[in-house]
Design a protein around this nucleic acid. Structure first.
Lengths: 229, 229
DNA sequence: GGGATTCTATGACAATTGTCAGGTTTAGGA
DNA sequence: TCCTAAACCTGACAATTGTCATAGAATCCC
């Protein structure tokens, strides 16, 4: 499994694709491949990162602890995403924790490889900038959603998001299974409220469940619900 | 008032400071200084921007319309900030509207000046990247605040924010006077709820008001309230 | 396999927040 | 100045959401 970045398909999805052959070689020589088990942390809020993590497989939640002791999940990162970029660039400690919600395979890339390339390869810098611009827009959207939509709408939206971004398994369940608590932390509500609404959706025939697994039954109605009908 | 960017102090506050003398000259030659009256828009959500706006004076709200017809204010931008950068970099139409909440003086800089410099001056690109990283962190904080704090806490926090970022006038009122509606759009609540809580704060002796103007009387208690006491 | 622990579920209730409906005040233009 | 429109304010009520308590189901680990 000891493969080279030059041959890694994953990098096509992120800013590493703007690196030159040589830069990639350097990254490949300095990178460390790690396995992270479900529930384990890649890094925790406040950590000083001395590198970034390129996700090869699995999914991580990026969350932030609030004063009242609840986690707010800000983003779910999957194959191809680079975590910790923001902190390395701003030279600050991270404002988010990254915890695996599925077993993961990641490549740790020391920050020197990144900062060196940033200084020498404008294309790479520009590519990173574009990604960051995209993330910022997404964050704005989250702000608007969370503050203007009801919990019910946000949960409906979360399910659609999970389907669109992570797909479904053979039996029609969402491929990414989150605990009820994680779901409530994504939409920013109490776990009990999330559970109650999930039950309601089930009664309404919008979804079906099996254990933790959730499947979408009536996508159209869910979409209408998000829009406020 | 037709001044040159090379001499403009404002640029010390933003990424333009990483430009070379020559680049600044070019920007200065191509820029257009504009006055924007309170209530007028610099640009509206969905517009294709062919440049960025450097704020010389006054304050603008950056907001996004939600499905239910309410504006959510995502950020308040003041002297020194550059608006529209994200859209120009990502080559997308804007996701936000920028509307003056005070009379403003801004310099419009055509996007060619920006993109050219981005291609040629890595220092500038890096500086822009750092700013964007900062904005992204702030956005994350807003997400957590808005989803985990009560309306009362968010309003208290908003007042402290306004004091810290825009200061007070001679009589001890917040220098930036927002309408009750704008306040409610910052914290993401109904206007009536905001008004009610402002009345309550007044009764509790936390603030005092005169017309629209609001002054902070008991900063410590407001801070405690934000923390959840 | 069994016991402990964590996760899910539901009820009852209280607190928060939004909505509607009305008033009053303020600000700006004719 | 006065008139009008907009902004502000308050009450009453309903809907939403959070909290606490409790119980069953699933899962993990020895």
């Amino acid at each position: 499994m000891e493969s080279r970045c030059e041959n890694c398909i994953i990098r096509q999805f992120n800013s590493l694709r703007a690196m030159s052959k040589e830069e990639l070689k350097h990254v490949s020589d300095s990178k460390i491949t790690k396995t992270v088990k479900k529930g384990e942390a890649l890094f925790e809020e406040g950590d000083k990162l001395n590198g970034v993590y390129c996700v090869r497989n699995g999914i991580s939640k990026l969350s932030k602890l609030s004063a009242n002791g609840k986690d707010q999940i800000v983003k779910l990162a999957t194959k191809g995403e680079v975590l910790g970029q923001r902190s390395v660039i701003a030279e600050e400690s991270t404002n988010l924790s990254a915890i695996a919600v599925q077993d993961m395979e990641v490549c740790f890339i020391p920050k020197e490889s990144i900062t060196n390339t940033l200084q020498k390869n404008p294309n790479f810098t520009m590519e990173v900038l574009r990604h960051m611009a995209h993330d910022l827009k997404e964050a704005d959207d989250v702000i608007v959603n969370i503050s203007q939509k009801t919990v019910k709408q946000r949960i409906a939206e979360a399910f659609l998001y999970l389907k669109n971004n992570f797909g479904e398994d053979e039996q029609g369940f969402l491929a990414l299974t989150l605990s009820r608590e994680d779901i409530s932390n994504v939409v920013g509500t109490a776990t009990e409220s999330a559970i109650r609404i999930i039950s309601e959706f089930k009664k309404l025939g919008l979804i079906h469940t099996s254990g933790k697994k959730i499947g979408i039954k009536d996508e159209r109605k869910l979409m209408e619900m998000v829009e406020g009908f």
